[in-house]
Design a protein around this nucleic acid. Structure first.
Lengths: 232, 232
DNA sequence: CGCTATGTTGATCCATATCAATAAGTGTGG
DNA sequence: CCACACTTATTGATATGGATCAACATAGCG
């Protein structure tokens, strides 16, 4: 692992409260690797060997069943994935692939579990991280069950806008077909949903989205902090 | 709290590893209450005042948006709910109501957080519980996104059968309209889905289900441990 | 450049929702 | 214990959101 990576990792919520010694143990066994796009990092059902941390780039979490595939989430820097599987020493429930060129830290699961047993600060940080993940999935589930596809897209755009610092114009960070899968629809249907949002002030050109009538879009989307807020 | 309740709580995974003293603190401030059916215990958006533990009966977790409502999960004895909100001191993402007459333990959230800070055994148990909850929601999400409504019902029946000790005949533990909502469909559609499963050896009479051709149903349902297993 | 993957658009189909009517439970009070 | 009211479940008819199929356009990329 490059020495310049270490402070960045140390600054993560997950590792901030652990002892210097335990952090050293954890990092010593780990390594950083750069992957090209479209590399599959984990396969659902496999046993958890490493805790992954995305340093740069982005990673798509997806799941399959009976020949079908669906996009479950996108992991962006700097955060971990498959923490739950690592801690429980259980098989992955999701697969992961790089969406773009990405630098990823790999920490051996055994080491993570060992430090988890010894370091109370780390154990508490894991709780916080897992609670966050849990709440994120619950929100996604509510989004899926309570909203139509157009409402989901409208709220997704409002969230994207917020993530871009409330800019009226921003880039979609996902390929449209992945976005469609994430929102639980087909690419064709997403295309039509974008068109259906035009009367509400949504202009799309390639990956660029401009929201010209925020009020109108919000009246349609009815965003809720209990579904659409990032942190709470 | 009745003295005879205490050992039962102490035996829960969540409380087994904590110090006697901290357990005492936690239990002292809590109390047990019996609620009639259809009592709403928490409301989404409210602040977390108590960690709830279901001793008997059952509790439905549900969520609402824009006048719509959906059933998210059913909590059965003996387990906790809204642990994530309690630990994070965040608003509830789901509401809870008793489905039947239920005995519930209420532990003040403040006490739970205080003990969480002090007791390392408890902190680790919370991790394990949260990881479990997280993985359960991920499975439910996969079920929803990757399967049609008939496939979801078929797999739900196979899980119910398993929970009933692989009995060929068992009772639905949910009202059909709640089951429909949990599976993400309308009651009418659930009715039709049951009829559609008749050729696969599913006989329904009231709340009683008999599975007469397991192989056939499994060929249709294609259950997967990564979606349908309870614990892993 | 030209190939291949992605995105769009149109036509059609299908799963599921909605609406409406009836039946069957379930609980309540007389 | 029965009659009534009310909720839940079923069934049929119809509507519709979203999927699928097909053709074409477009944009990355080697």
């Amino acid at each position: 692992m490059r020495p310049e990576d270490i402070p960045e990792i140390r600054a993560l919520d997950l590792f901030r409260d652990m002892s210097e010694e335990n952090f050293g143990d954890l990092v010593r066994g780990g390594y950083v690797q750069t992957f090209p796009p479209q590399v599959q990092l984990t396969t659902e059902g496999d046993h958890s060997d490493f805790l992954h941390i995305v340093l740069t780039g982005s990673v798509e979490m997806f799941a399959t069943w009976n020949g079908r595939e669906t996009s479950m989430a996108t992991v962006r820097p700097i955060s971990t994935f498959i923490l739950a599987a690592t801690i429980k020493d259980a098989p992955y429930l999701m697969s992961a692939r790089t969406s773009e060129k990405s630098r990823i830290i790999l920490l051996p699961s055994m080491d993570v579990r060992a430090v988890f047993e010894n370091d109370n600060g780390f154990a508490r940080a894991v709780v916080s991280e897992l609670a966050q993940c849990y709440r994120a999935v619950v929100k996604t589930s509510k989004d899926l069950k309570l909203r139509s596809s157009i409402e989901r897209l409208a709220n997704y755009l409002l969230r994207s806008r917020r993530r871009a610092g409330d800019a009226p114009e921003f880039e979609l960070l996902l390929e449209k077909r992945r976005l469609a899968s994430f929102l639980g629809m087909t690419p064709e249907n997403l295309s039509r949903a974008f068109k259906a949002l035009r009367p509400y002030g949504v202009e799309v050109e390639g990956a660029t989205v401009r929201i010209t009538d925020l009020d109108s879009l919000e009246r349609l989307a009815k965003p809720s902090p209990l579904i659409d807020d990032f942190s709470t």
